[in-house]
Design a protein around this nucleic acid. Structure first.
Lengths: 345, 345
DNA sequence: ATGAAAGCGCTAACAT
DNA sequence: ATGTTAGCGCTTTCAT
C-alpha cells in the first residue's frame, strides 16, 4: 500500500480525479464540503502529488537550474543562499550543480539539468565555450549569467566588472602611497574572474608607470593555507615590497597570517589587498584591504529576475544589473607613517 | 521551431520513436547505421531529452533530495560538495534545499522535494519533529540522516556523536591542565548539534568537579564577528579564565582575534577551543584547539550509501556509519608554561 | 533489428 | 460544481 495516486484519493473521497485535483490545488469552484472530503482523504492516505506528471501535463516546471564552479569557499554558497532566499515563496525550487571550474563538466551538468525542463537557468560567468552557449540558447528559457560583467551576455546578466575591480583597487593603493607591488594568486587558468582582476590591476599600475615587482602563482585552488605559504616564500625573496594584491580574501588572509608570523607589520610595512569582502576580513587582527562584492544580493537579484521573467513580465526590464564593489580597509595614513619612518631611518 | 521531441527526431531520421529512443540510449540491438542516423538528427536538431517524461514513464528518477540547515559557513557547502562528488558518474543529480535551521521550513522543503519522486533523500540531523519523520517514512525511499548520531535514525545514519565530541574536548582540555572554563556560543536553540556538544562538554567537566565559570550565548547565528564580540565582552567581565569553549570554529577564530587585540596571549593565558577543524584554524597565527569533523567525507559516504541503496544492494550493509573527530591544537606544555609563570609572579 | 500499443499520473479544454 | 476526453513525451511490453 504505497504511493497513492490522485485517482485513488479521488475514489476514496467519492469524486472524480479532476475534482480531486481542483480541490487539492485550492481551485475556486469546488464546494467546501467536497474539498474537505478530498483533503481529508489525501491527508489520511499520505498523498504526495507527483510533480513529474504535473509538469509534464501542464508544461510548466518550478525548477530553476543553477550551476556554480565551486563550494570550497564561502563565496558561491552565499550566492546560492541568496538565490534560495530570493525564490522563497515563489513555489520555485533551485537545483544546484557544481562544475569544479571545469568547462566540459559544466556543459554536461547544464545538458543534464536542461533535460529536467527548468523554467530558467542561472550560470556563473560569461566565458562559456560556444557549445555551451548553444545549449543555453536553444533551451529557450531565461538564462542568467552571474558574477561577471566583462563579456557578452546571452540574456540576463547580474554581477560586477572584475577588470574594473582590479583597476579600482590598484588606483586606491597607489593613491594611498604604495609603490612596490607583489601579486599572489592561484588557479588563474580556471578562475577567469580572478585573472580579470589581476589584468585590471596591472593595467592601472602600468598607467602609473608601475608593475608587479614579484608574483607567486600556484595551480592549486585558493585557500588560506596556500596564501600563507606563497606569501612566506615571496617575503623571503623580496622583502622590500610594500603591498601585495591577492586573487581573493582567502589568499589574502593567509598572507596576513604569514606576515604576522614573520613579524612584518601590516599595513605599515606591507599592505595586504584581497577581493570579496568576506566576514573573515572584517574581524582580522590587522586591516586588510578588499573589495566588497555583494554575493548574496547578486543571488537574490538573479532570483528576482527569474521570477519576473517566468511571470512573463515582458521585455521592458533591465537585462543587465551592475553592482559596483566598494573598497574597504585602506587608510592612507598608514603609508604616511611608513614613509616617515623610512625617511628618518 | 523549438524543443524537438523524440518523435520528431525519429521522423527526421526515418525511424520509429522506439528505435530512436534505443539509439540515443545506446541500446545494444540497434544497427550502427541506424544509430548514427538518429544521433546525427538529434545533434542537428539540438534535441534534449525530457526527463519528466522519461521518469514518469519508467518510474525511475535520478534525483537525490538534500536538505541542509544553512549555507552561511563553509561546513554544509563542504558536505554538499562531498555529496555531489560522491554522486558523480552515477547519473544521479542532487537537488538542494536550505532550511535556515527552521523545522517548519524543513518540513515544507521535504514535502516539496518528495513530490519530485527522488530516489533517495538526505537530511541533516536526527531531531526532526514527528510530522516530518512521518513524511520521510511514507516516502518509501532510502532516508539518510547526516552529521549527528545522537538519536534514533529513520533508516541510514552517517555522522558523529556531538555529545561525545564535547566530552572528548573537555577531557583533553582538563588533561592539558585547564581549570577555569568559559563558553561562547550562539543560536543553540536552533543549532541542536552545537547544544549537544556543549552538554557533553559540561558533563565531562562535572565529572571532574568543574563547570563553566562564565557563558556568553547570543541568539544570532555564528560568525567570526560574533565570536570576537562575545569574547571581548567575556574577557572584560572575567579576565581570569584559562580556556574558552566555542560553539564552532568560526566563533573560536573570532575569539582568537579578540584575544590578540586585547593582548591576551593564546594559548598561554587562554586556550581557545572550537569545533569543525576548518582550514582557517590551521593557518591562524596562534594555536586553536578543534575537533576535525570529516564534512566532505560524510557527504561522500552518504552519496555512496545512496548509490548502493538505489542499486538495490540488499539490506546486508551497515545502516550507521560512525565518524570520530580527532582533536588537534592542544599542547599541554603551553599550560605548563602558564602555570610556572603564575607561580613565579 | 525494429515497430505498435498501452500507459506512467497528472492537467487543459471542453462538456454538462 | 463536477465529470469526460485527450494528451504531455517518454518507456515498457509485446509483436514481428
Amino acid at each position: 500500500m504505497r504511493k497513492p495516486t490522485l485517482e485513488e484519493v479521488a475514489t476514496e473521497a467519492g469524486v472524480s480525479k479532476m475534482t480531486a485535483s481542483r480541490a487539492l490545488r485550492g481551485a475556486a469552484d469546488v464546494s467546501t464540503e467536497t474539498r474537505d472530503r478530498v483533503v481529508e482523504a489525501a491527508t489520511r492516505m499520505n498523498y504526495v502529488g507527483n510533480r513529474l506528471a504535473l509538469s509534464l501535463s501542464s508544461r510548466r516546471t518550478n525548477l530553476v537550474a543553477v550551476v556554480v564552479p565551486s563550494m570550497s569557499n564561502i563565496v558561491f554558497p552565499e550566492v546560492l543562499a541568496g538565490i534560495s532566499a530570493g525564490l522563497d515563496g515563489s513555489g520555485m525550487q533551485a537545483v544546484f550543480g557544481i562544475s569544479d571550474y571545469d568547462m566540459a563538466k559544466e556543459r554536461e551538468i547544464i545538458r543534464d539539468m536542461l533535460s529536467w525542463q527548468p523554467c530558467a537557468i542561472i550560470v556563473t560567468g560569461l566565458d562559456q565555450p560556444e557549445e555551451t552557449v548553444d545549449l543555453l540558447r536553444h533551451a529557450d528559457i531565461p538564462v542568467i549569467q552571474l558574477m561577471d560583467l566583462d563579456g557578452a551576455p546571452i540574456d540576463f546578466n547580474v554581477g560586477l566588472s572584475h577588470g574594473a575591480a582590479g583597476e579600482d583597487m590598484a588606483e586606491a593603493l597607489v593613491a594611498a602611497g604604495r609603490r612596490r607591488f607583489g601579486y599572489v594568486g592561484s588557479a588563474l587558468a580556471r578562475d577567469l574572474r580572478a585573472g580579470k582582476r589581476k589584468a585590471g590591476f596591472e593595467r592601472a599600475l602600468r598607467a602609473h608607470g608601475l608593475g608587479f615587482a614579484e608574483q607567486r602563482i600556484d595551480d592549486a585552488f585558493s585557500s588560506i593555507a596556500l596564501g600563507k605559504q606563497l606569501t612566506t616564500a615571496m617575503l623571503a625573496a623580496v622583502p622590500d615590497i610594500d603591498c601585495i594584491y591577492y586573487s581573493n580574501d582567502d589568499m589574502a588572509s593567509g598572507g596576513l597570517f604569514a606576515c604576522m608570523e614573520l613579524g612584518v607589520v601590516v599595513p605599515r610595512q606591507i599592505l595586504i589587498a584581497g577581493f570579496n569582502g568576506l566576514d573573515l576580513v572584517n574581524s582580522l587582527p590587522a586591516p586588510v584591504a578588499t573589495s566588497r562584492s555583494p554575493r548574496r544580493a547578486i543571488g537574490q537579484v538573479a532570483a528576482q529576475l527569474v521570477r519576473q521573467a517566468v511571470a512573463g513580465g515582458g521585455d521592458a526590464r533591465e537585462k543587465t544589473i551592475v553592482f559596483k564593489p566598494t573598497i574597504i580597509g585602506i587608510d592612507p595614513s598608514d603609508t604616511a607613517a611608513r614613509t616617515e619612518q623610512i625617511q628618518s631611518s
